[in-house]
C-alpha cells in the first residue's frame, strides 16, 4: 500500500505525539511536524505532503492564516483543521481559505483516519474505497446508537452485498432515503422477536409487558430514524457534503423481498441480546 505523507502542524508536543501515534498503524506517514506557521509553510514547501493536520492555536499566527499561506503556495493543499472549539464562525472562516474538513479535540483515531482518507481521495463519489470508509463509520454509529438506545453492547460485522435484494421472512424493515451526495438508501431491519425485544428495552418496559405490533413498529421506526440520521451526520462531518435523510417508510409483513438496482450496497449486522439488528446501506452507482 502506498504511504501517504502527512504534515502535522501543532505547537503542542503532546498533540503531535498523539496524532503521530494514531497514524502509526495506518498507511499514513508523518513526514514532518511544525510548531508554528512559519515553520509549517517552509516544511510544506520542501516536503510536499498529501495532507496537513492544522491546529488552530499557533504561536505566530492562527491556523486559518497558516492554512491560507499554505494554500497560496499550493491551491490544492488538503488541510484538516483540528481545534478545541468548533463553531460555525470558525468553520466559515476556514472554508473561506479552502479548508473542507474540521475536527474537534480530542480527536479519535477513527475520525482522524476517516477525515484524512476522505480528503486524499480526489473524487469521493467515484471512489469505492471511500464508500467502504462510510460503511465503517456507519458500523460505528450503529454500535454506539444501539448502546445509547438500549444499553446493549453489540458486535457489528460488515460485508459488501453480493445480491441486489434482501429477504425478510417475518419482521420489520424501515427504509430511509439518502439524498444529496452520495445518494442512496438505508434499510434497518430485524425479525419480529427482535423488534419486540428492542422496542420494550427502548421504552424501558419489562420483557413481558404487553405491546401491539404497531407500537413496537413505531419505536423501531424512530430508532432507525435516529441511527440513520446520525450516520448521515457523520458523513457530513467527514466530508463537506450535504447528505440528508428522507422520512422513514416502514414495511411490516412476511416473506418480503426488497430490491434495489444500480446501487452498491453493504450489509451490517449488529448482534445484540435481543437478536440481530441488520442494516443495509446502498449508494447509487455511477453518480
Amino acid at each position: 500500500m502506498e504511504r501517504i505523507k502527512v504534515l502535522i502542524v501543532d505547537d503542542s508536543r503532546v498533540s503531535c505525539a498523539m496524532l503521530a501515534g494514531m497514524m502509526a498503524k495506518t498507511n499514513f506517514e508523518v513526514c514532518g511536524m511544525a510548531s508554528n506557521a512559519a515553520d509549517a509553510v517552509l516544511k510544506y514547501q520542501t516536503l510536499r505532503p498529501m495532507a496537513v493536520t492544522m491546529d488552530m492555536n499557533l504561536p505566530d499566527v492562527d491556523g486559518i492564516e497558516c492554512s491560507r499561506r499554505i494554500r497560496e503556495i499550493d491551491p490544492d493543499a488538503r488541510i484538516v483543521m483540528i481545534s478545541a472549539m468548533k463553531d460555525a464562525g470558525l468553520i466559515q472562516r476556514g472554508r473561506e481559505v479552502g479548508i473542507t474538513s474540521f475536527l474537534q479535540k480530542p480527536v479519535s483515531p477513527y475520525e482522524l483516519i476517516d477525515a484524512l482518507s476522505c480528503m486524499v481521495s480526489d473524487d469521493v463519489k467515484k471512489n469505492s474505497g471511500i464508500r467502504d470508509l462510510y460503511i465503517q463509520s456507519f458500523a460505528k454509529v450503529l454500535r454506539q446508537s444501539l448502546f445509547s438506545l438500549v444499553g446493549v453492547h453489540s458486535e457489528v460485522e460488515t460485508k459488501r452485498a453480493e445480491t441486489s435484494f434482501l429477504d425478510i421472512a417475518s419482521g420489520i424493515a424501515v427504509i430511509i432515503g439518502l439524498t444529496g451526495s452520495p445518494m442512496g438508501r438505508a434499510i434497518v431491519y430485524m425479525d419480529q422477536d427482535t423488534m419486540y425485544g428492542m422496542a420494550r428495552a427502548i421504552l424501558m418496559k419489562n420483557d413481558d409487558a404487553p405491546m401491539t405490533s404497531e407500537e413496537a413498529g413505531d419505536v423501531i421506526e424512530e430508532a432507525a430514524n435516529i441511527i440513520v440520521g446520525r450516520c448521515a451526520s457523520v458523513v457530513n462531518d467527514l466530508k463537506d457534503v450535504d447528505m440528508r435523510i428522507s422520512p422513514p417508510g416502514t414495511i411490516v409483513g412476511k416473506n418480503i423481498r426488497i430490491a434495489n438496482f444500480k446501487i452498491t450496497s453493504y450489509f451490517l449486522e449488529a448482534q445484540t441480546r435481543f437478536g440481530s439488528v441488520y442494516m443495509n446501506v446502498g449508494f447509487a452507482e455511477g453518480e
Binding site: M183, R185, I251, N255, K262, G282
Partner: peptide
C-alpha cells in the same frame, strides 16, 4: 427536492407506513 434511490418491495402480505 432531492430524491433518493427507489426501493422495490415484493411480497404476498405486507404493509407500508409512510406517514403517521
Amino acid at each position: 427536492v432531492d430524491i433518493s434511490t427507489p426501493s422495490l418491495t415484493v411480497g404476498q402480505d405486507f404493509q407500508i407506513k409512510i406517514s403517521s
